Simulated assay, not measured.
Amino acid sequence: MTAAAAIETAKPVTRSDIRPDAAPAAGINPGRVGVLLVNLGTPDSADARGVRVYLREFLSDPRVIENQGLFWKLVLNGIILQVRPSRKARDYQKIWNTEKNESPLKTITRAQSEKLAAAIADHEHVVVDWAMRYGNPSIAARIAALTAQGCDRLLVVPLYPQYSAATSATVCDEVFRVLAGMRAQPTVRITPPYYVDAEYIDALAVSIDAHLKTLPFEPELILASFHGMPRKYIDKGDPYQAQCVATMEALRRRMGLDASKLMLTFQSRFGFDEWLQPYTDKTIEQLAKDGVRRIVVVTPGFSADCLETLEEIAKENAEIFEHNGGEQFSAIPCLNDSDPGMDVIRQLVLRELQGWI
């Protein structure tokens, strides 16, 4: 047979012909797929030093504080990093996982990673890991660990249902910063935001209903609190607010509630700029003053409980409500590593791995 004839009769090689467990040709390692779950971050310790290190990294990110000029550097280093760490350390100590000596966010994100690995264990060439955008384990360290295990493809999963430049985009920034220093880069995919995915909306509704059944009271309304951001970021084109609104509209339809019974607010203001409104703390205060006595709060923008949910909502805002006349307050846990929460992550990952597994 001539070379030309051999080419014409050769069977095309497809992906299905290549088995991940097949013996590699000489000098070629078998490819594996890495899945990296990424959450915002946490101090390594619940003391002023640990919080200072974390805040310096977080607040030095131009995605978080866009104006990183001389004035901001003076404020950050001369005031914020001198005063805020001690106060925030006391808040972390209220929620700290003393058994593991780590924040709940780290405990939960690790559990999400381990449960995802178990849920997709039939895909033997997939390796699941987790990282924090700020703090440890770092994105750089975990990408290095995954590539060391033979992962030549990487799915990065920012654990934020709604996209914003200050969360999802900064994960991408760091991933590509790490890749810029690598000669042998893995092929990378980034999961999209999942703010109206049916599995996510259903998981929220199921978790809310399950929590309400455990309460000794019936709330007059449910308040959904999302993390806030400066209004000017939205004016510059960030889609975060629109995606929060879309989440709420979908959740209201799923639960059969209107805006008066399932309210949207924004928490965690910082600095002197105008932030997205209505503000969670001001709304809770006014509700109590207006005679509302029983409420529950859910935090749909957080995939795992953290300082903003366990301390700011469940403690600070509960005190605001009670101080102004409210009587019964309950904070609904995030989806965390619950069965509904893991269904969301698992289905998102399997969808975005199509063609790789």
Rank of each mutant, 00 (worst) to 15 (best):
N317V: 10
A304T: 01
P300K: 11
D305T: 00
L307Y: 14
Q277R: 14
D305E: 00
T283H: 02
V296N: 04
I295V: 14
E285G: 07
L310P: 07
N317D: 11
Q277G: 14
E285P: 03
V292N: 08
I295S: 05
E316Q: 15
D273I: 12
S303L: 02
V292Q: 11
N317I: 08
Y279P: 00
L287Q: 06
K282F: 03
R294E: 10
E319Q: 15
I320W: 07
D273P: 05
V292K: 14
V297Q: 12
R293V: 04
I320F: 04
E285C: 11
E312I: 12
V292D: 11
P278W: 04
T309G: 10
T309V: 08
E311M: 05
E285N: 06
R294W: 04
E308C: 09
E308N: 10
D281C: 00
A318V: 14
I313P: 06
R294Y: 06
E311F: 15
T280R: 07
E274C: 03
V296I: 05
D305I: 00
V297E: 09
T283P: 04
I284A: 03
L287P: 06
F302W: 12
K282A: 09
D305P: 00
S303I: 00
V298M: 01
A314S: 15
T309K: 08
R294Q: 13
E285K: 13
T280E: 08
V292E: 09
K289F: 09
L287M: 12
E312L: 08
F321V: 02
I320S: 03
I320A: 05
T283G: 02
I313R: 04
L276G: 08
R294D: 13
E312D: 15
D290R: 13
E312G: 06
I295T: 03
F302K: 10
Q286H: 14
E274G: 06
L307F: 08
R293G: 07
L287N: 05
V297L: 06
P278I: 02
D290P: 07
L276A: 09
P300T: 12
A318Q: 15
G291T: 06
D290T: 11
T299F: 05
V296H: 04
G291H: 10
G291D: 09
V297I: 14
Q286R: 14
E308W: 11
A318H: 12
A318G: 12
I313C: 07
Q286F: 09
T299A: 14
L307V: 13
R293W: 01
K289S: 11
I320Y: 07
T280V: 13
E319I: 10
F321S: 01
A288Y: 02
Q286E: 13
Q286A: 15
I284Y: 01
G291E: 07
L287C: 07
T280A: 08
G301P: 10
L287F: 08
E285A: 11
G301L: 09
L310M: 13
W275N: 02
D281F: 01
D290E: 15
F321D: 01
A288T: 01
R294K: 15
W275T: 01
A288S: 02
I284K: 02
V296E: 04
I295E: 07
D273E: 15
V296C: 14
V297C: 12
I284E: 00
Y279I: 01
E316C: 13
Q286T: 12
L276Y: 08
R294L: 05
T309S: 15
